[in-house]
């Protein structure tokens, strides 16, 4: 995780605010002055543990589970759909079941895959809050949760896409899908040209988080760095 690494040099003469019980400096994230809301989080968590609602281990394993989810999961699903027409058809029919087939835990949600074609581009948003296909993509990026994105994605999607560097021709139909707590969308981007000979793993490397939200397109094969 990026925030396990300190940007500054480790200077052991430098005074750290507080050491952990094991004598190590706290992670940088934890060095800032305690806020009211952080105190509330600690208090709620401790009370829940004391009341037997949850345990510290259960919370830690939930965080691990969340950390293990990343756009790589969604990319694997997209690459499988590009490589296997029968899988793609199952994905478009029931994205939850198709993803479970690959071993991904989708929970009780309805997951719907929406396919980009030559003349249609799909964009997902949650105007209400932050509903997102987190089981396949991990936690949503900050911009997905902003007032600006949530307000404007449904009002002027072309202008929003342009801010992401995506200028679609007027002839392209843009469909905006508003997620709910029970219904999540994932965009199945169109397979880029020139990828005919690529393996599923190579295809997955072309699939970005943003192209599964609809604010981007897959990478082109020649822009992927070759190993070595």
């Amino acid at each position: 995780m990026p925030h396990d690494h300190h940007d500054h040099d480790h200077d052991h003469d430098h005074h750290h605010h507080g050491l952990s019980p094991s004598g190590h400096p706290y992670r940088q994230d934890d060095d800032a002055p305690l806020t009211y809301w952080q105190r509330m989080e600690i208090a709620v968590r401790e009370l829940l543990i004391e009341k037997g609602v949850t345990t510290a281990a259960e919370i830690a394993s939930q965080i691990d589970l969340m950390d293990s989810r990343s756009p790589a999961n969604g990319a694997a699903v997209v690459a499988r759909a590009w490589a296997d027409p029968a899988f793609k058809s199952r994905l478009l029919d029931n994205a939850g079941d198709a993803s479970r087939e690959m071993g991904f835990d989708i929970g009780p949600l309805h997951l719907i895959a929406v396919e980009n074609t030559a003349d249609t581009h799909n964009l997902i948003v949650c105007t209400l809050c932050s509903c997102y296909p987190r089981n396949l993509l991990g936690l949503p990026p900050d911009w997905y949760k902003t007032r600006a994105y949530r307000s404007r994605a449904v009002r002027e999607p072309r202008a929003v896409l342009a801010e992401f560097g995506l200028d679609l021709p007027d002839s392209t139909t843009i469909r905006v899908h508003d997620s709910t707590a029970d219904m999540r969308y994932i965009v199945l981007p169109a397979r880029p040209d020139g990828t005919e000979g690529l393996s599923e793993a190579e295809l997955a490397a072309l699939v970005t988080r943003d192209c599964m939200i609809g604010t981007g397109l897959p990478r082109l094969p020649q822009t992927v760095a070759t190993p070595g």
């Binding site: 948003v125 105007t127 902003t146 600006a148 307000s151 404007r152 994605a153 801010e163």
Partner: peptide, 14 residues
């Protein structure tokens, strides 16, 4: 909120 006018989408994340 959906459909309201708003400024540019802030791209910075954390």
């Amino acid at each position: 909120m959906g459909g309201d006018a708003a400024g540019p989408v802030p791209m910075e994340g954390h």
